[in-house]
């Protein structure tokens, strides 16, 4: 299991990335933590001409709070975000979700932006970004554009990243006053790809449920808080709308069941808590 030959470019500066894009065109892939990409390269499922390693690019190695968001640069590993002392207060949903993201060895290499760029439908970080209505900043030689999570994820392993662009940072909105957050996930083993992952965000007026692992991307449905009594029917309809798929381990029916059952459990919990 050896990759086909590729050039390795270490981008110490953002300009190096643009130079590599200029040289290799669309055949250059960004390498950050390599936790998904390298496996596919080794299996030869992907045969990029060049890997542009941004993991040591100081310009992309930043994490801070700005304009009501936790901003995470492209070189920041998942472990560093998880270890951020104020994370539970700043972005409680991320704090809840991190323990489900694989194992610490992988989090200490994998980057937040890399997981977003990979857009695995079962991954937790895209789910959190979508649930929180965060955004992605894409940078190219000609400038930057900011996309809402909904516009960024376009399908299974597919995003709105154009040739010549890379993710510069992602922005997670900070916890809003009075909002409540819940996360749950079922996987076959600890740290595995989610069969179904769920994020609940409850505000004073409504409750939103975002589901990962079922559709080709994270999907959110929002209801007024008064949905409580009608929740089973609402969740049943949502579960069907997600067009769950079967794989060798899991039936579509089981995925729909988890959406209903765990959705009910999480939403009921969060509604009860905010009332009391």
């Amino acid at each position: 299991m050896k990759p086909s030959a590729f050039d390795y470019v270490r981008a110490d500066r953002v300009q190096d990335i643009f130079d590599a894009f200029g040289h290799y065109g669309a055949e250059a892939r960004i390498l950050a933590g390599g936790q998904s990409l390298m496996a596919m390269v080794n299996y030869r499922l992907a045969r990029p001409k060049a890997l542009v390693d941004i993991s040591r690019c100081a310009e992309l190695d930043y994490m801070h709070v700005r304009d009501g968001h936790l901003v995470v640069g492209a070189a920041v590993t998942q472990a560093r975000v998880q270890q951020r002392e104020a994370l539970a207060r700043e972005v409680p949903l991320l704090h809840l979700a991190f323990p489900y993201i694989s194992h610490f060895q992988i989090r200490s290499r994998g980057t937040v932006c890399g997981s977003i760029a990979h857009a695995d439908p079962s991954a937790e970080l895209p789910l959190c970004l979508a649930a929180l209505q965060g955004s992605v900043v894409l940078r190219s030689k000609s400038g930057r554009r900011t996309l809402a999570a909904d516009a960024f994820f376009t399908g299974m392993l597919m995003t709105a990243i154009e040739d010549g662009e890379f993710i510069e940072e992602v922005r997670f909105p900070l916890a809003a006053e009075g909002h409540r957050y819940r996360f749950d996930e079922v996987a076959l083993r600890r740290g595995d790809f989610a069969i179904v992952s769920l994020a609940v965000v409850a505000s004073a007026s409504d409750v939103a449920l975002t589901i990962g692992g079922v559709a080709d991307r994270p999907v959110t449905r929002r209801w007024p808080r008064s949905v409580a009594g009608d929740l089973p029917a609402a969740l049943a309809a949502f579960a069907w709308d997600l067009q769950a798929q079967s794989d060798p381990h899991v039936s579509a029916a089981y995925r729909r069941h988890l959406v209903r059952t765990l959705g009910q459990r999480l939403i009921t919990e969060v509604l009860d808590e905010t009332v009391s």
């Binding site: 299996y43 439908p121 299974m156 080709d216």
Partner: peptide, 13 residues
């Protein structure tokens, strides 16, 4: 062999 988790999604796409 290695993509069975995503096969159905890929076929659909």
């Amino acid at each position: 062999a290695v993509g069975s988790r995503m096969l159905e999604g890929a076929a659909k796409v």
